[in-house]
Amino acid sequence: MVILHRHEEWRISSWEGDQFAELPLEGEIRDLPSSLEWRRWDGGAGDLEFQLRPSFPEYPVIAKPKPALTISPGGHALFYIGIPASLEVYGQCDGTLRKLASLSTDSLSKSWHGDRSAGQVCYALRTRARRSFDPSDWPEHDIVVAVDLKNESSEAFLFDRLFLDLGHFSIFNHEGHLWSNACQIRISEDDEDGNDITYAPNPLDPASDAPEIATAQAGKARRSKIGSAFTSVIDIIH
């Protein structure tokens, strides 16, 4: 990504892959390749401030452990899910910081949660849900979301898929990694209205004291419900 402030306007160019991998971090404008595609926003002469903020992707996500895990009645399992962060670029326009662009740090694959006649678009995560957090093995721009699944039903629960709405998660910064506040999802017999999800105010250790750098987009919540969180309800009829 290249951000430019020139002729009282902001210009942003972004690309995927290694197309412009040889571009130096600093240089002259004339050194920029002419094949860059720019988006432009009007700004004033004194509008020089810009900010980069991390955010969650615009759609909910579907995470899958590989292989699936069976959680016994009364048991619980903690998973760490990596969600590729998006980068929001804010630029000063007429004295006010405005959001200019939102760029994903990874190309996410679209998916569908629901059946063929109703549902919502979401992203399918490529990295699997893990049982532990290893900073050396964690993708650089993935936000660590700790999800504790608690089986309060009387039957064993097969966890092979989780639909997660990201609206109530904030982002914290800890030692070069992005974390979100943790959550617990309860699985019970009475899940007709959805699964109970409880949000912690902070991430789990070792990031429990991390400072918050981005607030939840849908606002902070203590409890919520996720409809059909674990159900693959697509009716496959060929």
Partner: peptide, 30 residues
């Protein structure tokens, strides 16, 4: 990029044609 992860794409071998082995690729999208 447009092909949805779920529902799973339908990929099946549909038969031995006169001139070819035939397949069907059914990709879901918005």
């Amino acid at each position: 990029v447009q092909c949805l992860d779920e529902p799973d794409p339908l990929i099946i071998f549909t038969g031995f044609g006169d001139s070819s082995l035939n397949f069907l690729l059914g990709a879901w999208c918005l």
